[in-house]
């Protein structure tokens, strides 16, 4: 199973209903993703960082995740300043770095991290099963939520099955090399995993039907929204408004 290192805790983010968090995360990430203002992205990143800090994530795992995400922004920093073009440029170690490129890379980095923090604070603090049920309650297509919930549960088993087959091959002396034999063997392994997963899916479906499944998953733990949830949602939407309002404010220093 995919680990959920941030899903368990007792902060106010962990206690809130998944529906409220889904709406808040959707609204906030939409604003952050669509903005082209440094102020909005910067303030957003800062605020999301503060909220994330309040949800008390495990520092070690958090750092690893931040590094993973910024591994991608790192490539932007490698390419954009050199390729973006434009009239303004900075000379650095005999390189012409485009100012526009640096600005774009900064903006993208800020936005990426702000949205990432937002998701860690609001979504990663709920177990995935709750998010799935929350999505269904919010009227997301049922097929989509099933897909999410079942891939989450079954990916692990499929992976295990693949490993078992791979082990069986290795135990019989299979050493991967650049040969037709290797490619064929991997082809068989993938094919067999696919067939096995298909059969398993069919049996699980049977098990579900036998226990009265008629097409809708009924969540076990989904208490109705309470006042705190509503208050939290209102607060998050106010935060959205605040971020939106920044973009209308003419900052004298903004480019």
């Amino acid at each position: 199973m995919i680990e959920e290192p941030f899903a368990h805790g007792s902060t106010l983010f962990h206690k809130r209903d998944s529906r409220v968090k889904l709406i808040a995360a959707g609204a906030l990430s939409l604003i952050l993703a669509l903005t082209d203002s440094f102020a909005v992205a910067g303030v957003g990143c800062l605020l999301m960082g503060l909220l994330l800090w309040a949800s008390r994530p495990e520092p070690k795992i958090l750092c690893r995740r931040i590094l993973t995400v910024n591994f991608f922004t790192f490539f932007l920093w490698l390419t954009l300043p050199l390729t973006y073009g434009g009239n303004e440029s900075i000379h650095f170690l005999s390189l012409h770095l485009s100012l526009g490129g640096i600005k774009t890379a900064t903006l993208i980095s800020l936005k990426t991290n702000a949205i990432f923090f937002c998701f860690l604070t609001l979504l990663a603090t709920s177990p995935l099963a709750n998010l799935g049920h929350g999505m269904e309650k919010l009227g997301m297509p049922r097929k989509f939520t099933f897909l999410l919930l079942f891939s989450y549960r079954q990916l692990f088993i499929i992976h295990q099955e693949y490993q078992r087959l791979q082990r069986a091959a290795r135990l019989r002396g299979f050493i991967p090399a650049n040969s037709i034999h290797t490619y064929r063997t991997y082809g068989y392994l993938f094919g067999m995993t696919l067939v096995k997963s298909w059969n398993r899916a069919e049996r699980i479906h049977q098990a579900m039907i036998l226990r009265g499944f008629t097409g809708s998953l009924i969540p076990l733990n989904q208490p109705p929204l309470n006042t705190k949830d509503r208050f939290f949602l209102a607060l998050m939407l106010l935060l959205c408004l605040f971020l939106l309002s920044i973009s209308f404010y003419k900052c004298p220093y903004a480019a």
């Binding site: 199973m1 398993r200 049977q206 098990a207």
Partner: peptide, 20 residues
């Protein structure tokens, strides 16, 4: 393994009664 598909034991055992 074909019969247990929910993440937790309680959810799996409750699946039938909920459907009924």
């Amino acid at each position: 393994d074909d019969q247990l598909f929910s993440p937790t034991v309680l959810e799996d055992v409750a699946f039938g009664p909920l459907n009924m």
